[in-house]
Write a protein that binds this DNA or RNA. Structure first.
Lengths: 130, 130, 130, 130
DNA sequence: GTGGTCTAGACCACC
DNA sequence: GTGGTCTAGACCACG
């Protein structure tokens, strides 16, 4: 079962998109694999403190992207192959980093300052995997 | 006068927030300084191709944060001291990087992989300042 | 025994309502009469390929309308008098036709056009009873 | 402006579908024509006593069917040609009448009884056009 | 004022 | 218990 332990919704971006991102990151990291079951709509909604419909929307969009399979009355499952994992990985790197790099450059940081700051932040954060 | 040359609205986040962010980044980078004048609402709205109300909203929120001063019938000016600049800098670093680092770690990257990727992206992107 | 031969669930309306309607139509047509036995929940659920709970719900609602009588451990039977049949008939005519007539008038048809179209459709459709 | 004077939501079928149907019927009858403006989301929602979102859903689906055109900040307009009107007409006749005829036959009515009842109902109902 | 989107809660059919 | 759908209300960008 995919874990939502370290997940906490942030303001500003839609919650359902954050849920999608969380699952995609898990897929890229390898912690979420084909055949894994997703938490049911109700379980996850109470766990995250949001409306079941928000979960529903996230799962629905993931199904449209052919990452999960849902059938009425049964649990939803991860359905991916290696090709898909590679595609998601490229997609996430693009969206995650491109904007951050632009922001840092606009703030006047040099490449060296940037990597230094990132290195220091890397140590701070609670790490599941180093 | 603050430059909005490299500003281009992105979908998904409110434009007025993007304007606020743009100005804050300028402050942190040093390209926007105390005493600088902001473009009038009318000028900026035509320049960016957005509604004057959207500009109004951004300026109003900046004023509430005590970063600019507006007087009826006159231009708005940047009003900041060193203390404020440092605060904005911390605030932006926090919001920009914290999430990205968490995302990269969650995707299973090591610190070395992360800095390497960022370095390579640094070269690619069109740069106003290196 | 009530026949469900020509019954085929339609999407969009709850199945239990369609079952209720099917039985009511049978009552009005005279093919379903007082004293007739209903198929057991288990038999009908497998016959229609739906969940036993759905059948249970339909039977329960029919019982609340005093159209059938159920006793624990025994079959359910149709329990109606002439008065009831007349009531059901009026009820069904009302719901079936009132809306259709309003729709046809709203589409700008004349009474003659309407009856002509209905006559032609009458021939087309597969008929169990003419 | 398209009229919703004689519109009153019925239980059992989704309200947004009833709204779609109402507009389509108007198109078929000729009372709704290309270029006509639709009531705004708020106006219609208060008029019908439903949530603005329900109107939104109806309009959105009509737009997907290329019957109306919506642009942010501007009113929505009917956009149809003769070809489309004919298509809608066929579609409505099909869905409106097919089910009713099946129901009437199942209730044991003859063709003559059916047309007689429809004729009598035709007189009763409040008519905008005879 | 307009339409677009997100979150919310209830109800349904199904297993 | 599961997922699917409808209605609801608030917020946003835009003209």
């Amino acid at each position: 079962m995919i874990s939502f332990e370290h997940f906490q919704p942030q303001d500003g971006t839609p919650i359902y998109q954050q849920i999608i991102l969380h699952i995609k990151r898990g897929i890229v990291s390898g912690s979420v694999m084909a055949g894994d079951a997703l938490p049911s709509r109700r379980v996850l909604s109470t766990l995250l403190g949001v409306n079941p419909n928000t979960i529903q929307k996230a799962y629905h969009l993931l199904e449209e992207e052919h990452l999960i399979a849902s059938h009425a009355g049964a649990k939803s499952y991860i359905v991916i192959d290696n090709e898909t994992v590679a595609r998601i990985r490229r997609q996430l790197m693009e969206t995650e980093l491109r904007g951050t790099v632009r922001a840092l450059k606009q703030m006047g940081l040099s490449k060296e300052e940037a990597t230094t700051i990132i290195s220091s932040l890397w140590e701070e954060a609670p790490s599941s995997q180093t």
